[in-house]
Design a protein around this nucleic acid. Structure first.
Length: 317
DNA sequence: ACTATACTAGCACTTACTTCA
DNA sequence: TATGAAGTAAGTGCTAGTATA
């Protein structure tokens, strides 16, 4: 099931990369989806290069939602109640946790945590052991630490710290926050870490929240563009269907005409068939019968000799 | 120079929650 | 008041690109 999904994703990626991964649907309509970095944005990035990753001291102070599953390695997510408890694992002597950072190759054992007299942990939560999970845990720790630094007053706390003992509460951004984020998104649809942190600080949000907002915003933009593209394709398809129908009809008429030729009326200097005047005409230069739309290339053409033959056949009848 | 491994950003998909008709 | 649809913040896993040993 999951494997099938992954295969589909893989195909999807191949498809997009086979075209141009920065142009979205290659219809030439509307804006591109992926929004490649503009020259200005690239210049900005050069001026403000992404900050090097700083492995902050592992200070798992996060208070999170829900009942944690049974604790087990490889990564443990500490949950405390708000600012009530300061749990500083970096100061402990646990294997897998290095002072000043995380050694992700080593996993602290549950026992060690439990035995630590320093730790007063409300709950432990296990996330998966992939690098992304570790990264996210670190981000959470970073985010919450940053937020704590910023706001230790209860009033300005957002979701995380209000979620204790209940299911996840969803943050709703204020109008001001949304407006500022939108404004920022119009300037650049992606943020470098410096921009992200600055914006987060300005909005009194966690950097992760800003990042998620931008991700979701890009997804919404892409979805809308896809809808527009679908609409254009639909209309295009309808037009082609109509054109096809018209051409089929015309072809049918012409075939019928060919199958059962009507007697020609031969005039003094020219030949003509009693057909709808709008359909067939004779070219004065080459003396071929053709339609008005494309007299030389597109429809049944009758030479002078053919018409003579028609006339003879008619006479024979 | 080449390779294996680790790390990261971004994306697709999904879930959970809020708002509104 | 209940309810379903729509909108959206957030969680999760995957991949491509890049850095490093």
């Amino acid at each position: 099931m999951e494997e099938t999904k992954n295969k589909q994703r893989g195909l999807e990626r191949l498809k997009t990369s086979a075209n141009d991964d920065t142009t979205g649907l290659a219809l030439g309509v509307g804006l591109s989806i992926a929004m490649p970095a503009t020259a200005a944005a690239q210049e900005e990035d050069q001026k403000n290069p992404p900050l090097p990753l700083e492995l902050l001291p592992f200070r798992p102070i996060a208070s999170r939602v829900g009942t944690p599953p049974a604790p087990s390695p490889p990564f443990l997510w500490f949950m405390t109640n708000n600012c009530r408890e300061e749990v500083t694992v970096a100061e402990t002597n646990l294997s897998g946790v290095v002072r000043g950072g995380i050694d992700m190759n080593q996993v602290p054992s549950t026992n060690e945590y439990e035995e630590s007299s320093v730790l007063q942990v409300d709950a432990l939560r296990v996330v998966d052991n992939g690098p992304m999970a570790v990264k996210r845990e670190r981000e959470r720790a970073f985010d919450l630490e940053a937020e704590r630094d910023r706001t230790c007053d209860v009033s300005s706390r957002t979701s995380d710290e209000e979620e204790i003992g209940s299911t996840r509460k969803k943050l709703r951004l204020s109008k001001e926050q949304s407006a500022l984020l939108e404004e920022s998104f119009r300037e650049h649809s992606t943020l470098n870490p410096k921009q992200k942190n600055a914006l987060a600080k300005q909005l009194n949000l966690r950097p992760r929240q800003v990042e998620v907002w931008f991700q979701n915003r890009r997804a919404r933009t892409k979805l809308k563009q896809t809808e527009v593209d679908c609409e254009v394709l639909k209309r295009c398809c309808e037009n082609l269907t109509e054109e096809n129908r018209r051409l089929q009809k015309e072809l049918q008429e012409l075939r019928a005409l060919k199958a059962a030729p009507q007697p020609c009326v031969i005039g003094q200097d020219n030949y003509y068939m009693p057909l709808p005047a709008t359909t067939l005409t004779m070219c004065p230069s080459c003396e071929r019968v053709a339609t008005m739309e494309n007299s030389h290339s597109r429809s049944l053409q009758f030479s002078k000799s053919q018409i003579s033959r028609f006339a003879q056949q008619s006479a024979a009848c």
